[in-house]
Design a protein around this nucleic acid. Structure first.
Lengths: 201, 201
DNA sequence: AAACCGATTGACTGGTCAGTCAGCCAGTGG
DNA sequence: CCACTGGCTGACTGACCAGTCAATCGGTTT
């Protein structure tokens, strides 16, 4: 049959997508592999056909999306825009990632990025690369005189990223309204807060 | 004997302190209750004499310190200082908490604050109260004209808190140097970033 | 000195799961 | 039409561990 190879690929994807939903709903630690299989409408054993372990499923989900983030940051950096516009692009990408798939972003933030003890530990190098790339944008901005130089670029990078991630956390845990307009505004607001500051100019 | 009641209290404390160390080292999920007992130099069963469950140990650790943070924020708010100085006081308190007991702060951030799925869920109301109290400081600052009004105070609060917590995360996972001077500078730098912004004035 | 009582001990149990594996089934090639 | 292959199945197992509990200990009271 023409579709003889297709189902195989589908099933793997099906499992990953199901895992996103289940991890988002119950958290990684309290999902059983059986939950993923059930959600995917697939036999228990098939999960182990495609993945070495339950951990590997999460690793795959993280790496898939984080590499996009890294690419987006590095692309923003390479562009000819102002440092501020570069930061705005990064914030925009992260917010759009959330809009596009809130459950996946929830899993990534809750189970990896903010869980540097368990999974984050494994991915610390990749996570760090994001921080470093943002720091580079800031450092360049300091070089060009667009940003003040008395705030360490690594420090500024952490503040910027922390501010965004905290917004996402607020949405994820429904501490903060997350309508379409809220998300859209957040893109500019984070950058405005970090670049202009809270005090009037 | 005069010290007849004292050991009882000691043991409870001993267990809590041991739990801080073990949770910080291995993470909550991969510590066995036996690890806590061993670290405390106490029999397994005694943990259950003082605490209903393993979870309750963590809850206790969190609540103990978080209530201090809430008190500190609210006290800062009540003071006559400028809004900016109030924020600086909050940042200072959090940084000092880290300096005073990095392991405890690690546990609180990694296992509770940033794990709103598992433990955070239980403590969401308390956590939210911190965000709200900070938002109030910002809102008052907007009222008095010290802060601009086009950035929502709840949003600013999340950015501020997120920026600090991200710094702590950097220290915790050794992504960022954490010498005494670094910690000291961080207090002012967070506030400077958020209040003044990265762009030169 | 005997009864009492809270602190302390640690062996044991019941339940939970991640991961294995022996085999099934559908499509393909000979 | 049969052998083969690889996606697919799900019952099973071995390990692990939170929480229980019966027993002991040491100090206090009567």
């Amino acid at each position: 049959m023409a579709s003889s190879k297709a189902p195989a690929i589908d099933k793997r994807r099906q499992i990953l997508d199901a895992a996103i939903r289940v991890f988002a709903r119950q958290g990684f630690h309290s999902t059983r592999v059986a939950d993923i299989a059930d959600e995917a409408g697939v036999a228990y054993g098939l999960v182990y056909h495609y993945f070495k372990s339950k951990d590997e499923v999460l690793n795959e989900l993280f790496s898939e999306r984080w590499s996009l983030l890294l690419a987006a940051i590095e692309e923003a950096d390479r562009s000819a825009a102002t440092p501020r516009a570069k930061l705005e692009a990064v914030a925009g990408f992260i917010v759009d990632s959330y809009r596009h798939d809130p459950e996946l972003m929830k899993v990534i933030i809750v189970e990896v990025t903010r869980a540097a003890n368990s999974f984050g530990r494994t991915h610390l190098p990749e996570i760090r690369r994001a921080y470093d790339s943002i720091a580079k944008i800031v450092a360049d901005g300091q070089q060009s005189g667009d940003f003040r130089r008395d705030i360490d670029s690594a420090f500024a990078s952490m503040s910027f990223y922390g501010a965004i991630e905290q917004q996402l956390s607020g949405w994820i845990f429904e501490l903060t309204p997350a309508s379409d307009t809220d998300l859209e505004q957040a893109k500019t607001l984070v950058t405005a807060t970090i670049c202009d500051g809270l005090e009037p100019r």
